[in-house]
């Protein structure tokens, strides 16, 4: 677990993934099915975060497992099966976006966020926005719609690193390998993705409702409700 309480990258199971991979390579379909059962939901969550559409995310998951099976012989075990699979999921998800051109293929212009107020120009993170109770906030459909809309504004790459980090707790190194870029690029993308998300959600008050008027003065931290 890291400081944010995110789960570690490698889950533990009674039968090791490595053994299942070996068995699957030998043609044991049940072994591959077990791998599917272990990781399909998490693969879906990751794909959903990137491609945004439930149906498309299911397609990505399906394609990812088919591809993983096809290339099982090439899986050398340098990373965990889990990490290897998620690399496939991410690549397919980003490919999917490129093919369907739902999102701008370029990075979001960092200096023009939301309504263009000055708060977005500087390169700093924003303080707390929801009064310390995100769990309760998620019960609100309106807030969930806002989160969805905020994700929609991110570029593909920003969304990809954000989702990989927040969902899977992948290290910068792991993400750099998955996206075939430098660790510095990952850090930069992640930083800006988080900042953009905060900016998109900044007008929400501590009780979760949108503020009556948008302001550069962000609400002070509140105790949990």
């Amino acid at each position: 677990m890291n400081k944010a309480g995110q789960r570690a990258s490698t889950p533990t199971h009674a039968v090791d993934d490595a053994d299942l991979v070996l068995a699957a390579r030998r043609g044991d379909r049940d072994a591959f099915r077990t791998l599917y059962e272990r990781y399909h939901r998490r693969a879906y969550t990751l794909a959903l975060g990137v491609v945004r559409s439930p149906d498309d995310a299911l397609d990505v998951v399906q394609d990812a497992f088919i591809k993983a099976h096809k290339y099982l012989d090439k899986f050398e075990g340098a990373s965990s099966f889990y990490t290897w699979l998620y690399r496939i999921v991410m690549n397919l998800a980003i490919d999917h976006l490129r093919k369907h051109r739902r999102h701008k293929p370029v990075e979001l212009d960092e200096t023009r966020l939301g309504d263009g107020t000055d708060r977005a120009v500087d390169d700093s993170l924003l303080p707390k926005i929801l009064g310390g109770n995100p769990g309760r906030a998620l019960m609100d459909k309106q807030i969930r719609a806002r989160i969805d809309a905020a994700l929609e504004t991110l570029s593909d790459n920003h969304r990809a690193v954000l989702v990989m980090r927040e969902l899977e707790g992948l290290s910068y190194e792991e993400m750099a390998a998955a996206m075939e870029c430098s660790k510095g690029t990952i850090m930069s993308r992640l930083f800006h993705a988080r900042k953009n998300m905060q900016a998109q959600l900044a007008d929400l008050r501590g009780d979760g409702a949108p503020a009556a008027d948008s302001s550069t003065d962000l609400p002070a931290a509140q105790g949990s409700a």
Binding site: G5, L126, K128, L162, L167, R194, Q198, L201
Partner: peptide
């Protein structure tokens, strides 16, 4: 700011 990072993380994870 550290709390806010955790907040975004929780929101996004919970939402997805």
């Amino acid at each position: 700011k550290v709390d806010a990072l955790g907040e975004v993380s929780e929101l996004l994870r919970g939402h997805l």
